[in-house]
Write a protein that binds this DNA or RNA. Structure first.
Lengths: 183, 183
DNA sequence: TTGACGAGAGAACGTGCGTTCTCCTACGGT
DNA sequence: ACCGTAGGAGAACGCACGTTCTCTCGTCAA
């Protein structure tokens, strides 16, 4: 089996299991079982579990932001594009396997013990914030709007994760619309 | 030593260690060392670690909401009281040992494996939201404002935790003021 | 055909930790 | 003084899991 293929399969399993059950409750043996990649191969690809976790967060970051950007791109009006972010969140929250924001969860689980994970979380949140800032600038709005919109989105992710409801996305969207109007 | 005293000492140590280093990386033996309460006594008071975690979250919930309410009570004007919530958050974020919201972190760490912890987190967040709803009602504002204010506060907690900055509180406060004006 | 090599299955090893057990000490009542 | 009991210190137990090792087998070059 090709190394690249094995790597993808390992990451597929890691993402499914880590996101669904948390990092610490998933053993390397579970990854092996779910991916079909042997332990020996796993440790060749990722010398330690922490690096598998890092790779999982990194790949998910790229994909998550891609999916978001693709949804946003379907809208023409720059203000609509900003609101589309919250629509996309609503769709995400409604997915069957949704269990909150992977990075916020990882921070809660590993933030105190793994600086590499903290760096991944900061990087992801910064990238998301930068993306919002770009949308705000494209709409010709005040840069100061970025912070509040970001906080609304983060609050919605946390709340949707804890409660299991998609409602926070709609609440955040409504609040965002008010802020856009007032800004 | 009195049972009640031992219980408080155990919870003091549990709170300091669980909040500071996460639940899973703190052993019962660490609790014993930090509290001076013997293992035997610990297991008399809390038959399993999970119940110690529950008790920790429960006691912290009561104290956290008390501290917040005491700060808010110092303000007369009902709208000022709402904004005072965000001032209090800023002070909290600035504390030396601040490491994010204990419940959000606990959800990330144990949400997938411990329904009791999930219940504690939901309970705490619901109580906080109810409190905000009360403040909104007292100010004669539309009930629909509660959701957005709650999301701003949650977003600020997460972001302050991840970045270690107090800035999100000020951003949230500013956004809250705009929403109050527009609402 | 043979021998070297890579890969997989799974045992093995070391450690950490939740929980329980053992032993010892101190004290309170008779 | 003597015993029963509570409590503390810390060893012991069982298990989970990260990581490494062993054994075996298939493959491919010479």
């Amino acid at each position: 089996m090709d190394s690249a293929v094995a790597r993808e399969q390992a990451l597929d399993a890691a993402e499914r299991l880590f996101y669904g059950r948390g990092v610490q409750s998933v053993g390397m043996d579970d990854i092996r079982g779910a991916s079909g990649v042997s332990l020996k191969r796993l440790y060749q690809l990722f010398p330690a579990k922490e690096q598998l976790v890092e790779a999982y967060l990194e790949r998910r970051d790229v994909r998550w932001r891609q999916r978001l950007a693709e949804h946003v791109r379907r809208h023409e009006d720059p203000r609509e594009r900003l609101l589309a972010v919250f629509d996309w969140l609503e769709g995400w929250f409604g997915e069957a396997d949704f269990r909150g924001c992977a990075w916020i969860n990882a921070y809660g689980e590993l933030g105190a013990t793994s600086p590499r994970v903290v760096a991944q979380v900061r990087g992801h949140k910064q990238a998301f914030r930068d993306y919002l800032a770009e949308l705000v600038a494209d709409a010709g709005l005040a840069a100061a709007l970025t912070g509040p919109l970001f906080l609304l989105a983060e609050g919605a992710m946390v709340t949707a994760g804890v409660t299991g409801s998609t409602e926070p996305a709609a609440e955040a969207r409504a609040a965002a619309r008010v802020l856009l109007r007032a800004g």
